[in-house]
């Protein structure tokens, strides 16, 4: 309860300080508009921004589904086959770690402007964290559970289906939570770099046009959408894992 109050007070205080700072002219309102100027801008950009958001979220959804399906399958395959894991893991870690922004120009050269590079780049961002997490989870499955299943005569198929897959559900859910933010990030970056539509493009053009209130409003909109998605996934996560307590 006190926590909740403190959170609300913090937000109000931050907005208040921001408002005062902007009103007093300590910062240039051209760059940092007061909250009271951002709110009307939110209404003004409404329709166009929502269309952009829908476009971005659509691409993100496609990239996300691909990332989860590919990431989980690759993670299970590489994680459960020892030779594959030992040979591939340095490459996987390397690809996970390098800044993917460096290949972005090349992707745009190859795939052009529009939806395809955005989805591809989104998958590039979403795939690796999911795969790395799942790979680790498969490797770390409790050996006793595997021994139990084998002693009870489990076939290889049954080992995967009844032991490995249920055991990695928490990691898959964790990866899905992480992955969605990465996918959205990838899509937004492409839209900023070489977009003709979508929220990344909208943000970029407001920034280039020095439309600070609109830019802040649009930023708030994307952030809210992203937080809502992650909270929804968290909720789903809690529902699906009663056995974890």
């Amino acid at each position: 309860m006190r926590v909740r109050i403190l959170q609300i007070v913090t937000v109000i205080a931050a907005l208040g300080v921001w408002e005062v700072v902007a009103r007093m002219g300590w910062v240039d309102p051209l760059f940092v508009p007061a909250p009271s100027a951002v709110a009307p801008a939110l209404l003004k950009i409404g329709r166009g921004a929502l269309a952009g958001l829908a476009d971005t979220l659509g691409k993100t959804a496609v990239a996300y589904v691909l990332s989860v399906v590919l990431g989980v399958s690759a993670g299970v395959a590489v994680g459960s086959i020892r030779l594959l894991r030992e040979v591939l893991s340095p490459y996987v870690i390397a690809f996970y770690g390098i800044p993917k922004i460096l290949v972005l120009p090349w992707i745009v050269l190859l795939l052009g402007y529009g939806t395809t590079p955005a989805v591809f780049y989104g998958v590039l961002h979403g795939f690796f964290p999911i795969m790395v997490l799942v790979m680790g989870a498969v490797r770390d499955v409790d050996r006793t559970l595997v021994a139990v299943a084998r002693s009870l005569g489990a076939t290889t198929w049954q080992l995967y289906w009844k032991v490995l897959l249920p055991a990695i559900v928490p990691s898959v859910l964790g990866g899905m939570r992480l992955g969605v933010v990465f996918c959205l990030l990838g899509v937004l970056v492409v839209e900023m770099f070489a977009g003709v539509r979508g929220m990344g493009h909208v943000l970029g053009s407001y920034a280039n046009g020095f439309q600070a209130p609109e830019l802040f409003a649009a930023t708030a909109l994307v952030s809210a959408a992203s937080i809502a998605i992650v909270l929804a996934l968290d909720h789903l996560n809690d529902r699906l894992s009663r056995w974890r307590g």
């Binding site: 403190l6 990465f182 959205l184 990030l185 929220m199 943000l203 970029g204 930023t219 937080i227 909270l231």
Partner: peptide, 26 residues
């Protein structure tokens, strides 16, 4: 910590690149 920790984590759930246009403007 209990009040701000989750808020910090929630901000972490926003793809950071959305802040970049504002930073560029500023």
């Amino acid at each position: 910590g209990r009040a701000w920790g989750p808020m910090l984590a929630a901000l972490y759930a926003v793809p950071a690149v959305v802040w970049y246009p504002s930073l560029m403007l500023f």
